[in-house]
Design a protein around this nucleic acid. Structure first.
Lengths: 212, 212, 212, 212
DNA sequence: GGGTAAGCGAGACGGTACGTCGTGTCTTCGC
DNA sequence: GCGAAGACACGACGTACCGTCTCGCTTACCC
């Protein structure tokens, strides 16, 4: 993993032709400190000073490269999130949907990256900029992948022409997000199976009788 | 100095009426201050000192009765939340479901109480105790009401015997919560209609024969 | 327990002919609490709330009868101070002066009442009213007693006519106060003897040669 | 500025391994604020917050460099006290003693520095550490200077060999401290003259033959 | 001998200041 | 010229007492 790829900030690259450049070592150790502290003490007690100390870095260095705690979390999150997004493609809609739903549930509820995501989402409730960034950098793509099995099936003719992949994806994944973020219920495989089955039964039924 | 006992002059009553027990006046004005400030400056900039000042109350009084900012929000929320929960009951499932879904969407996305709710839910992501309290004091009941139209329909025979109201409610309301809390998309009436239609089409189609 | 003997305060006795009267029990236990707390935790950490709690009395009761912490201390002090003031009178100036100086030194440096006195004197540095009260209720009398052996000796002809008892007392007692209050040196009998001897030698010498 | 290890500033530098320098500007303005506030509102109403505000400094900065209000006062006092201590030396004991006694009385009763000193001495009654510091940093030196004219006279042979400068100084200065700190009487030139005359008359008379 | 008013405990109240923590900015100096 | 170290002004924290104010109880006087 050549880690300049997660470095899109142009300001950080301004020093390109200079003698001195950003310390990659510092950057890495900050992001690791964030990961570690998030797990150990939780978001609520995460402080810039704590991160700096843990990373063996000065506060100034953090402020130089990240404009806020949330942006720092975004970076720490991006580092890990992509692993979870891409659905399998077996050619069987029901299986692909179940597998990806299971994967998303696992990510959201049990992974470290998911914990960071929930923390970011929580912050995003009071911070429109963060919300926007979270959406454009993660959710848009995430949603695309959630729709992917359905669109593939649509292309294959496994779903009726007038089926709406967006809506169907919403009915499969919405309840999963709800359980993790809101009700705190565990997302069991049985629940996922029921969701997928009902959704597909529905689609076939309504898709075949569009006039109803 | 023998006449200090009774205050005949009503004009001299500058002091808030303190009972030996808790001052209801103080309690009310604190909760109102929380409501007002949440709307005006948002959760992120809400401080105990600000609330105390706005309410004309000492910090100590707040700390005496509420153990944390979140508990205070919880109380302020309880005060307003109940208005939104109860679904109408026209006897027609589709109408009732649409109406209640619309109502929930409105509450979540646009009401003051909904703003408090989102703030609490955000905090609950890092605070298990708050999460538990939020669930037991609000979400359990809220969920019951979301299921109500479906259970009524089940009793009326408008739904097949083997339909699962819980699951159906999840497929209607889950996507609504998702849009408000996660993706930030507006919840349009058309979206709600589509959700309800799809959910009911399915149930009727798969759960029992449409002709019955 | 009708302990009216330590009750000189006329305000407290005002209720004599009334139906209702001050609780002597409360008064005593407050003053005892002050004494105890002063010794145990020192003046700096003495609080009205602490006194009330220790005395098993409500704050209001304290505020009802004493207008300030210092006034309370004054009362606690008056209770004990008088024991130390009166000098012996053997008819021999040197002996009487030594004995009383020793007594005053003991009071100031080592007695409980002396500790209260030092605390009051400290407060009096920033509180003119207290200073005035301390002077009129204690120091005037105390100074009279310090002068007493010298004045008696003057009457007896043991001192020259033009000797100034005030000035002589100042030279004997001033250095004692200085050691206790300022330098913290212990006031030894040897120091007292030297002071008295020098003062008397001086007086005889200068008193006999008034023209010098 | 090539070496941080040597501080040209007269104030003590206690942060050893620290390569970052204390803001001299902040230090000065804090001490000036203390001086100003003491005079304007008095010790009793002096608060750290008030000092910080007046100095344009954060509370944290005060707490960083001074461990208590008293230590802060101690510093503010040291700044000004030394002006008052050194006695003149005309070679005539009576004149020197009178002049220095007058100077000390002026310092104690009427100067700003004296007001700080009285406040510190008051605090020192309930705080042994402060008492010790006040003694070692001020009183020892002060006492030396009070003795100086007497010791010079002793050396010159103006006093008998067996005269005790310590005791003599105590009899001159003790009563002055007493009047300022305890009785509140003003220290008049006449009082000082009387003290000095009486003290010297004695010594000359008893210690050696007046004719010498 | 019942009514009633003062003293009392308890403690909530609006405040002020405390001493601490974390923020984001700034400066110094080592590499 | 980046980066560590950390001082700085600022703002909020949660706590301790302040002095004021009911409240409900007890008690002792007076009618």
């Amino acid at each position: 993993m050549e880690s300049t790829e997660n470095e899109p900030a142009p300001a950080a690259r301004r020093h390109h032709g200079n003698r001195h450049r950003r310390s990659e070592e510092a950057r890495i150790s900050v992001l690791q400190a964030v990961d570690g502290l998030l797990v150990e003490i939780g978001y609520a007690r995460l402080t810039i000073e704590g991160i700096a100390q843990r990373a063996g870095v000065s506060k100034q260095t953090i402020y130089r490269w990240w404009s806020s705690k949330d942006e720092l979390l975004m970076d720490a999150f991006s580092k890990d999130a992509s692993d979870w997004m891409i659905p399998s493609d077996t050619g069987r809609l029901r299986d692909d949907l179940r597998a990806h739903a299971q994967r998303v549930a696992e990510f959201m509820a049990n992974s470290d990256a998911g914990a960071v995501f929930r923390a970011l989402l929580a912050q995003a409730q009071h911070d429109g900029d963060l919300a926007e960034r979270l959406r454009s950098e993660f959710l848009v793509e995430q949603k695309t992948y959630e729709r992917l099995p359905l669109e593939a099936a649509l292309q294959r003719g496994e779903l009726p022409q007038n089926a709406d992949p967006d809506l169907l994806a919403a009915q499969v994944f919405g309840p999963i997000y709800y359980r993790v973020l809101v009700s705190g219920e565990t997302v069991t495989p049985a629940f996922i199976d029921a969701l997928v089955d009902l959704t597909l039964a529905n689609t076939v039924a309504s898709g075949s009788r569009p006039g109803s």
